[in-house]
Amino acid sequence: MTVGHALLGLLEAGPRHGYDLKRSYDERFGHDRPLHYGQVYSTLARLLKNGLVEVESEPGAGPERKKYAITDAGVSDVGAWLAQPEKPEPYLQSTLYTKVVLALLTGHDAADVLDTQRAEHLRLMRDLTRRRDGGDLADQLICDHALFHLEADLRWLEVTAARIEQLAAQVRA
């Protein structure tokens, strides 16, 4: 699970309180989706149960006073996770494909569907380009990733638009 591994990875730098951990996670990886405290503490509880972290309590400590440290098992778990490639996501955004086929089946202009989608994709690409060019290195990496994916979608849109008449003939056959 990614949040668990991310928190573990952050702990490799040194023991931290749950609150600090959440803050560094949000700063680096949270962007539009900061972690809830509940999620932080339930994830830490699971890591604790699995022996991947341990607690360095401070005197008179409530849960928010606990300092978490990564164990040796935790360090090798992070290493194994980093060594594992992520599953590529090669498949088409299915709603768009459905819309194109249905447009062809029902006699709507499928090229309009593609044009509308292209405009929306480009709008987002403009926003991301602005954010990337004005941002720090982390912004650049994140925006570039999104931009390359959107670009791939757009290439699919172009190729589909070029084949729309063939596709129409097949769909209606």
């Binding site: 480009l122 690409m125 403009r126 991301l128 380009t129 931009l147 670009e151 757009l154 638009a161």
Partner: peptide, 16 residues
Amino acid sequence: HEPRVAAYSDHEAVVR
């Protein structure tokens, strides 16, 4: 023909 380059524009016009 590159979307990433077109992303520097304010508007696009698609020619086909």
